[in-house]
């Protein structure tokens, strides 16, 4: 019997879930995250720490930077990858998505198609990285966790994120398509 045609395989492992299933499950795990770890889910702050580690491996030092000056930040940097919950969780997201893709037999290495994509990835990545640092987070930490934490900052973030997305869409259609 061909497993790929099996009704239960398709139902349990293959077919895309409705968005609402995702919303409910993400919310549940958000609540679990706050209850167990004492902090909501965040993604992008971790990437600054990764940046600091990368900078240190090429001989740089961030010890004098205000952002990494606090005792907590220093402890995180010294503790290393394996003791940093956020890093472990971010790698978990990558592996979790990989598992989902493989179990549904949908994995494929998607190569870069054009130079436009390269420019878009570099520019978009830099904007997101810088923006997330000065705006205290990304769509997860500042928006989702911010709003859910009953912080007004989450709503302000949402408003300007939306404006940015409109401008981004215009740029995308004009220059990157």
């Amino acid at each position: 019997m061909d497993i790929k045609k099996n009704k239960y395989y398709k139902l349990w492992l293959k077919d895309a879930w409705p968005y609402i299933t995702g919303a409910v499950l993400l919310s549940m795990f958000q609540i679990v995250t706050l209850a167990v770890t004492g902090n909501p889910w965040g993604v992008s702050g971790v990437l600054a720490t990764w940046g600091a580690w990368m900078y240190e491996t090429v001989g740089g030092s961030v010890d004098k930077w205000y952002y990494f000056a606090s005792e907590g930040a220093q402890r995180t940097l010294e503790g290393g990858f394996i003791n940093h919950g956020g890093s472990i969780r971010n790698i978990g997201i990558i592996i979790g998505a990989l598992i989902a893709t493989l179990l549904s037999s949908g994995f494929k290495i998607k190569k870069l198609k054009s130079w436009k994509q390269v420019v878009a990835a570099i520019l978009g990545g830099l904007l997101m990285g810088y923006g997330a640092r000065i705006g205290f987070g990304c769509n997860i930490g500042a928006l989702f966790s911010g709003i859910a934490s009953l912080s007004l900052s989450g709503w302000v973030y949402a408003l300007f994120l939306f404006l940015g997305a409109i401008i981004g869409s215009k740029l995308l259609v004009k220059y990157f398509m």
């Binding site: 998607k110 190569k111 870069l112």
Partner: peptide
């Protein structure tokens, strides 16, 4: 649209 990221396939 192979290799194109969202939302380009939809717009195209």
């Amino acid at each position: 649209c192979l290799g194109e990221a969202c939302p380009i396939p939809l717009v195209k």
